[in-house]
Design a protein around this nucleic acid. Sequence first.
DNA 1: ATGATATTTCCATATTACATGAAATATGGA
DNA 2: TCCATATTTCATGTAATATGGAAATATCAT
Lengths: 118, 118
Amino acid sequence: METEIAVRKLSALAHEGRLAVFRALVKAGPGGVAAGDIARKLKTAANTMSAQLLMLSNAGLIRARREGRSIIYAVDFEQMSSLLLFLTQDCCGGRAEICAPLAAVATSCCPPKRKQRA
Amino acid sequence: METEIAVRKLSALAHEGRLAVFRALVKAGPGGVAAGDIARKLKTAANTMSAQLLMLSNAGLIRARREGRSIIYAVDFEQMSSLLLFLTQDCCGGRAEICAPLAAVATSCCPPKRKQRA
DNA sequence: ATGATATTTCCATATTACATGAAATATGGA
DNA sequence: TCCATATTTCATGTAATATGGAAATATCAT
């Protein structure tokens, strides 16, 4: 991951409301949640929620799909994992074996395309 | 970790310069690096670097200690781990066993107080 | 087509963050 | 004490971002 992209992801998360949205989506898992449902759950105005979802989406942290009149948002777990990897990369002066496993575990979380574990 | 504190950490990281500083310190490990050395390495003015280190420090991501005329900064790996844990908490709708191990691995990285692994 | 639901876009304003030059503080050596 | 090194603090102009009301767009049902 490039630094600029990581900064965009971190900026998207560096906001009380958006962080709450992201965490709610992390909890929800790959199935995702409709924009309106998140807005109601977090007691946020629809337009505000839309802006927050847009920013998370532009950062690549979440993805949107239409389903009827609703738009369902779900975390892009691969992107999330690569961000965590980026933050922990080369941890402790090259002794990657100490910290790198973090990345592997992250990657194994809710894989969107490859084989599931449980 | 509380949301407000996580936002402060993420805000501190959501900046090209500060993210570079943080990653350099992650690479350096618990030993840390002097403020001036980081500034030279990243070709940043001393006062700018000072502001960046202050913000990372206020967020709790790094710690400072004086050593002669230099001030050495090092990542607070426990704080870093708890941030990663916060982001991945309750991942995938309660099926924590899928994602929670991430936290355990993160915690095992460069423990500042408990027993070292390698 | 009309109305209801779901979400987004537009816009104005208020707030906050950023970079930089210059000065201040702290430490150690002669 | 005087000077050099190391880092921080201060002040300021500029730029980025947040918020919320109102309007626009898209979908579905009647």
